[in-house]
Simulated assay, not measured.
Amino acid sequence: MRICPHCQYEMRESFDIKIDSTGNGLKVTKEGTFGEVIGKPKVAVCPKCGEVSIYLDESDLSAIAPHKIEY
């Protein structure tokens, strides 16, 4: 569950962003022209204020943070 950083309301998750011309969405890669793909971003939207949050699934984070980070 994601909480909106602006109004503290529960965000709706698992939306996607598409590129209009191709419809293939976006990819997050490591730096470089042909960088290794880390994951496909997901989107959460706050139904109260309209804030949009782009995030990666926890499983995608293992490529950049091998150990789970506790807050």
Rank of each mutant, 00 (worst) to 15 (best):
25 G>R: 06
61 L>G: 00
29 T>S: 15
8 Q>H: 14
51 E>G: 03
64 I>F: 02
70 E>V: 10
41 P>F: 01
18 K>N: 10
58 E>S: 05
48 K>M: 08
60 D>I: 00
59 S>R: 09
38 I>N: 01
19 I>L: 13
11 M>E: 00
42 K>E: 15
27 K>Y: 09
19 I>E: 14
11 M>F: 01
56 L>P: 02
32 G>D: 05
57 D>H: 12
44 A>M: 05
37 V>C: 10
34 F>R: 11
10 E>Q: 12
18 K>M: 12
61 L>F: 00
13 E>R: 07
20 D>M: 10
33 T>E: 15
60 D>F: 01
58 E>H: 02
58 E>G: 03
62 S>G: 09
43 V>R: 02
67 H>D: 12
59 S>M: 08
46 C>L: 01
21 S>P: 02
65 A>Q: 07
60 D>M: 01
7 C>H: 04
69 I>G: 03
30 K>N: 14
13 E>P: 04
33 T>K: 15
65 A>G: 04
9 Y>E: 11
3 I>H: 07
65 A>M: 04
30 K>L: 15
3 I>N: 05
48 K>I: 08
60 D>V: 00
53 S>E: 11
34 F>I: 08
66 P>F: 04
57 D>C: 08
19 I>D: 14
59 S>I: 07
35 G>H: 08
56 L>Q: 05
26 L>I: 07
7 C>M: 03
45 V>P: 05
15 F>D: 11
18 K>C: 10
20 D>Q: 12
39 G>T: 06
26 L>Y: 10
34 F>L: 12
3 I>T: 10
51 E>T: 10
66 P>L: 03
4 C>V: 01
53 S>M: 11
34 F>D: 14
53 S>R: 08
21 S>A: 06
4 C>F: 02
62 S>E: 13
57 D>I: 06
66 P>W: 03
66 P>V: 02
19 I>H: 15
62 S>I: 13
67 H>Q: 11
68 K>H: 04
6 H>F: 15
54 I>A: 13
6 H>I: 14
38 I>G: 01
51 E>W: 09
50 G>H: 03
47 P>M: 06
66 P>N: 08
7 C>G: 04
2 R>I: 14
1 M>F: 12
59 S>E: 11
31 E>M: 14
60 D>P: 00
68 K>N: 03
23 G>Q: 09
52 V>G: 02
20 D>K: 12
8 Q>R: 13
5 P>S: 06
5 P>E: 08
65 A>T: 07
30 K>D: 14
12 R>V: 15
71 Y>N: 07
26 L>E: 05
29 T>E: 15
62 S>C: 10
63 A>H: 09
9 Y>K: 09
58 E>T: 04
51 E>R: 02
7 C>Y: 03
42 K>Q: 15
5 P>Y: 07
